[in-house]
């Protein structure tokens, strides 16, 4: 187990290095001049040049890259071009709690709606409950989240005034109810489909037949014997989604006016704020990679066969 963990940690560092390198060079490949953007359209060439020098943009690409890596190794993500020298890590730290709340809420809604729907649909495939769930999943998959979000805002927030319109406030969960629900609804459809498919397969296995022959309660059969065998793919999805959401969900953040990592990244790209872009990309990649690792740990916790293989 321990050498396996070390090997995985090594892989994670390599992946992150690769991602951050790509992000770094890609932001330079984008046409446009950050110095010009900061200086404004009316600045003269000397001002632009001095800004460029201040930012270190006149150095060679290679020395900029090594300098960037050197700072990164010390935990310094650099300072934002656009936000008047604010440290990137500080900006990320400000945006992350919002994104984390959206991510947790979104994943929770996905699981709460999707998994039971999948189980109910799989229990008697082809029956009414299955058809309703399948149709619901199709609608959920087809409806774009920005549209669902706007509908919810219009009816529940604007017309009925049950929920706040946009932004964040107190109590937090009240403001996050609609955005997380919107995010979760689209994902829930995937969860329902995946749970249904896996569950149908598991319910056909001899060990479920044996569980029936043993005279166990249906609840025990479904939850103890069947669901456990569906858990592995489910946890993969949860982990990947969580990592992905932590990198920011731009559409949800835009529609509901939430200051998360998605909005931060979008603005950074808009302003060619290279340190901010690389910082945000690194942050997103970090969560995806970490969640991946946690998912693998969870496999081992659930399935003794995985444990044994390592």
């Amino acid at each position: 187990m321990t050498p396996w963990v070390l090997r995985r940690l090594g892989q994670m560092v390599l992946v992150l290095l690769g991602v951050v390198t790509l992000a770094f060079f890609m932001s330079y490949a984008v046409p446009g001049d950050p110095a010009r953007l900061i200086a404004g359209p009316n600045a003269d060439a000397a001002t632009v040049a001095s800004i460029r020098h201040q930012l270190g943009l006149d150095a060679s690409l290679w020395s900029q890259y090594t300098g960037f890596l050197g700072r990164l190794a010390r935990g310094d993500l650099g300072t934002s071009y656009a936000l008047h020298g604010a440290p990137v890590s500080e900006q990320l730290a400000l945006a992350l709690p919002t994104s984390a709340l959206i991510a947790v809420g979104g994943v929770l809604w996905q699981v709460i709606i999707g998994v039971p729907a999948g189980i109910i649909a799989a229990y008697r495939p082809g029956r009414a409950a299955d058809r309703i769930a399948t149709l619901g999943a199709l609608v959920g998959l087809s409806a774009p989240p920005f549209w669902v979000g706007l509908l919810l805002i219009y009816y529940l927030a604007y017309r009925l005034s049950i929920f706040p319109l946009t932004g964040l406030g107190d109590p937090m969960w009240w403001y996050l109810a609609l955005p997380t629900f919107t995010l979760g609804l689209a994902g829930a459809a995937w969860y329902a489909r995946m749970t249904r498919t896996q569950m149908i397969e598991v319910l056909r296995t001899p060990y479920i037949q044996l569980a029936r022959a043993k005279g166990l309660r249906e609840r025990t059969i479904l939850l103890r014997h069947a669901l456990r065998n569906v858990l592995t793919p489910l946890i993969t999805m949860i982990g990947m989604d969580f990592g992905y959401f932590l990198g920011g969900v731009l559409i949800i953040e835009s529609v509901f006016g939430l200051p998360g990592v998605g909005k931060l990244t979008y603005d950074a790209i808009d302003q060619l704020d290279i340190p901010m872009i690389t910082g945000a990309v690194l942050c997103a990649a970090f969560f995806v990679v970490v969640m991946n690792f946690l998912v693998d740990l969870a496999y081992a916790a659930i399935d003794p066969r995985v444990r044994n293989r390592r």
């Binding site: 001899p206 060990y207 037949q209 044996l210 043993k214 005279g215 166990l216 065998n229 399935d303 003794p304």
Partner: peptide, 25 residues
């Protein structure tokens, strides 16, 4: 009735012992 009967009064052994026990329990 079925639940109380199966396993208690009437039991079954299946063909493939590799797949008739739940691998995760």
């Amino acid at each position: 009735e079925l639940r109380r009967w199966r396993g208690a009064q009437a039991a079954m052994v299946f063909q493939d012992p590799l797949s008739s026990l739940n691998p995760l329990v």
